[in-house]
Design a binder for these strands. Sequence first.
RNA 1: GCCGGAGUGGCGGAACUGGCAGACGCGUUGGACUCAAAAUCCAAUGGUGCUUAGCAUCAUGAGGGUUCGACCCCCUCCUCCGGCACCA
Length: 837
Amino acid sequence: MNDKLGEYDPQRIEAKWQKIWEEQGAFNADADPQRRKYYVLEMLPYPSGTLHMGHMRNYSIGDAVARFKRMRGLNVLHPIGWDSFGLPAENAAIKNGIPPRQWTNSNIQQMKAVCKRFGFSYDWRREISTCEPEYYRWNQWFFLRMLERNLAYRKRSKVNWCPQCQTVLANEQVVDGCCWRHETTAVEAKEIEQWFLRITKYSDELLDDMAELQAGWPERVLVMQKNWIGKSFGARVRFAVADLPAIAIEVFTTRIDTIYGVSAVLLSPHHPNLPELIAGMPGNNATQERLDSMRKVNLRAADLATAEKVGLFTGRFALNPFSGERVPIWVANFVLAEYGTGAVMCVPAHDQRDFEFAEKYRLPLKLVVQSLHGASLRADQMESAYTEYGRSVASGPYTGLDSAAAIEKMTADAEAKGFGKAETTYRLKDWGISRQRYWGTPIPVVYCEKCGMVPVPDNQLPVKLPENVALTGEGQSPLASAADFVNTKCLKCSAAARRETDTMDTFVDSSWYFYRYTDAHNDHAPYDSAKVEYWFPIDQYIGGIEHAILHLIYSRFFTKVMRDLGLIRHNEPVRRLFSQGMVQKGGRAMSKSHGNVVGADEMAQKYGCDTARMYTLFAAPPAKDLEWSEEGIEGCARFLNKLYRLVDHHAENLRNVNSVLSETVDLAHATSKEKLLLRKAHQTLKRVTSDFEVRWHFNSSIALLMEYYNEIHSQEPLERDARPEVVKRIIELLVLMLTPVVPHICEELWQMLGNSGGLNRVRWPESRDDLSKEDQFEIPVQINGRLRGKILVDDGLTDDEVSERANRDPRIAQLLQGKTIVKIIVVPRKLVNIVIR
RNA sequence: GCCGGAGUGGCGGAACUGGCAGACGCGUUGGACUCAAAAUCCAAUGGUGCUUAGCAUCAUGAGGGUUCGACCCCCUCCUCCGGCACCA
């Protein structure tokens, strides 16, 4: 059994070093103005109970970077916590009768154990859990600050309502337009009073500040956010209604230049003036019925894009303010109530939707923009709308202007004549944060009959979520049935009052959590601004692309609000963002519901966490999706075994040797084997360092380190023709470079080599160009771009000397016989290309 | 429909700034060790052809272009993935 001692035993090694790290507080970091900081963060996980290799990939990337940066001498903040409010806990309670807190906390315990089993270098002192009053009281605090500044407000708004459950449904609980529990019951829209945060006040800033993010954020995330904000420039134009002087219809358009082509005015079925317009029209009952059905259709957002266009003539006419023309007013199912003014002008010749609508209802098509190039368009021959810019035709005084000029002039004229004005609209809407759910942050206001809505004062925070609430999933918001909670006294007049029973969207919790990490247990403020000042902005944020929009826009919004509150000074919370790819199995993302989860714990038990981490980094570049393969991970296990045996084999001889620092290697006296291996080491070091600093191609870094290992291995026995102090350094460099990826085994190997003290305090080695430089190059020789031979040349030869060498090569010379050399291209150290005729 | 991203061996992938396509790993095949197996070690491994120690030739989704030279740049097209989707 003695020979077993020399075997790599990940379970023993990993437990050993995790214990040492924990005892030393090796990864605790505190603000220290004397040192440069680095804040690296993985997105806050939801405690579902299972950690699979998808999570581990995310954390392995972050941990490798954190460890690398520590070795580079930076003060690294690397925290973790739990996004622990939310619907699943409530569902579990309804299903199994386990209280949400109990379910949540036991999941956190399980997941925390797995994180510890993987030895991630977190500062656990800073752990947060958003469902704890010490955290969510600050959600309430921020809410009150926003309320004071009119950034939080109430308005009536639609919710998903299941008539069977008699309850509000979250969007996730609506499946194909039906309730998740009553699959045949269509969800209805119900209007109730809800809370909103005025994110639209920051629309322009959210858009403009993306310039700051250009360098560090993925292009696609910025594009997605830009589209989400959806700024568009246009004009609002008023159409008078014939015979109804009290009403005017306003439309929003980005193409006012096409207004001479208007064939109708189209209203959303939800347009507020609609009842007055159709009142007293003949056939009112049938009209009402058709309107109702159009309104229903308009609810099913998913089908809208493909739905057939349906219209209804109101019997009324509008007057085109530019031409004075009388055009019919229609209701159209494709006009959105929530965007612009809820009404549009219908220009069939120059808008595809209007084109289709006009075709169906036989509205006239009037060509008012002519193409600048190609054959001129004819109204009676158009098969689709012409939506490009061009030159105005048949447009009264604007005829002949190009589209951009026409837009400018017509907008100005509309403004001068008082029937229109330039307007910018946004797709972004205010953030509805009310949830008629239990497991979330209570919104800290009460309602008094006399005083109305009264905010809870700061000194009464937190408004604690009651824990003894029966969760049935039916009836109103669960909190509404908790009498002890609901019934309270008015904070102004002490009369009987009701508490707000809505809770906050959990995206509120995750919008500012990374600030809390800087000062996780502060009980008199959300954080100390000085600490934030030191650690912010986050240098590197890592997470899934699914958060490209909501979480990342909401947190940008929160940062701007906090800045306007005077708490912080920066505009943007995250300097660099990285979106890692998903881990898949069988072509689908790992998830409990797909039943294709590869458990992290299971992998750690089977292979050890170093192997599991290494594989997640090696199998694909981090930005790409990764298909889990059991054979692949075996390869990494094999490599770590070989590595262990290499060090074990040399440890006894090298333990008491002082390794030569590469800075002091005397090349003049180095043997050729020493030179060869040092050269390989420093070439590897140079590229691995840059992979960690900028490229983030960890898969390539690992491949390079395997190559370096292979080179060492192929030079065995090392002790022949190489001095022990150099051999030791050569092996140490391999161990040091692998540390960010496989920290436990490296600590062990470092110790086996006779070094004392943890690796987390050892500096990343500096690469030396004089050591990595080759003194000979094998250069391919091409003839007309085709590889025809190779020559070995010394470094430092001139281009002419190199090309002459190439010409002298027997094989090349033979091929050149009788040919005319047109020119010779020499790329130093790379290649020679001889162009012949 | 619009906006992104991606297409390279049997597989995951590499190729840094336009310079030897296929590094590294997996798999497969052959060999060594073994009574045997596992593990380990060694070797081979894109296709085709040939006068087969080698050499030629084709090959990075398809077609074209620029260049001495293209996986890389440009144009056209195809496929897949993701986001938004009647946003006026």
